[in-house]
Simulated scan of single mutants.
Amino acid sequence: MVAFKVPGMTCGGCAASVRRALGAVAGVEDVQIDLDSKDVRVDGTPSADALRTALDKAGFEADGLPVA
């Protein structure tokens, strides 16, 4: 499990974009988002680099995502 914040996620559309982008990463089993706190939890075995790349391509940045 990897947990981090996505401060730029401000609405339901943003949350859906983040969920879709992260869900497409190899090894991701589930993505849980708390829009109010901007918290994202990813279950599975994805690499931090792949998660970061997916978020970058979707136009978001992560705070607290581990550096591989």
Rank of each mutant, 00 (worst) to 15 (best):
V25P: 00
V6M: 07
C11T: 10
V6Q: 04
V42G: 00
A24S: 14
T10V: 12
K5Q: 09
L35N: 03
A3R: 15
T45Y: 01
F4T: 09
A62L: 12
M9D: 05
A50M: 02
G64E: 07
A16S: 14
I33N: 05
G8Y: 03
A26V: 06
A54E: 03
D30M: 14
V18G: 08
Q32R: 13
S17T: 10
V2M: 15
A21W: 09
R52G: 07
C14R: 07
R20P: 02
K38Q: 05
T53L: 14
V25D: 01
D43R: 13
C11S: 12
G44F: 08
G64V: 08
A24N: 11
Q32I: 04
A15I: 10
V40N: 01
A50Q: 08
R19E: 15
R19W: 02
A24M: 08
L55G: 01
G59V: 00
A26G: 09
K38D: 00
P46L: 13
D30T: 14
Q32V: 08
K38P: 02
S37W: 04
A68I: 05
F60T: 00
R20S: 15
M1K: 11
D63K: 11
D39M: 12
V28P: 03
G64S: 08
T53M: 13
A62C: 10
R52M: 00
L55W: 00
G23A: 13
E29D: 15
A58C: 08
L55V: 05
G23W: 12
D43P: 03
V18S: 09
A50S: 14
A24Y: 06
V6F: 09
L35D: 00
L35P: 03
V2E: 10
A3F: 07
D43Q: 13
K57S: 12
T45D: 13
M1P: 11
D63Q: 13
A62W: 08
D63G: 00
E29F: 10
S17N: 15
F60M: 04
D39H: 04
F60E: 01
M1Y: 13
C11R: 09
T45P: 06
A48F: 02
K38C: 02
R20K: 15
R19Y: 05
D39Y: 01
G12T: 08
L65H: 09
A50T: 05
G44L: 06
P46H: 09
E61P: 02
V2I: 15
V6G: 01
V28T: 00
S47R: 14
G13L: 11
S17Y: 05
I33Q: 00
D63E: 15
L22D: 02
V2F: 15
D63V: 12
I33L: 14
R41P: 01
R20C: 07
E29P: 06
Q32K: 12
V18E: 06
R19F: 07
D39A: 14
D34E: 11
C11I: 12
L22E: 03
P66N: 11
R41H: 11
G12A: 13
E29H: 11
E29W: 10
K57N: 12
V67W: 05
S37H: 02
A58M: 07
P46E: 06
A24R: 13
G8A: 04
A24I: 09
E29R: 14
L55P: 05
K38Y: 00
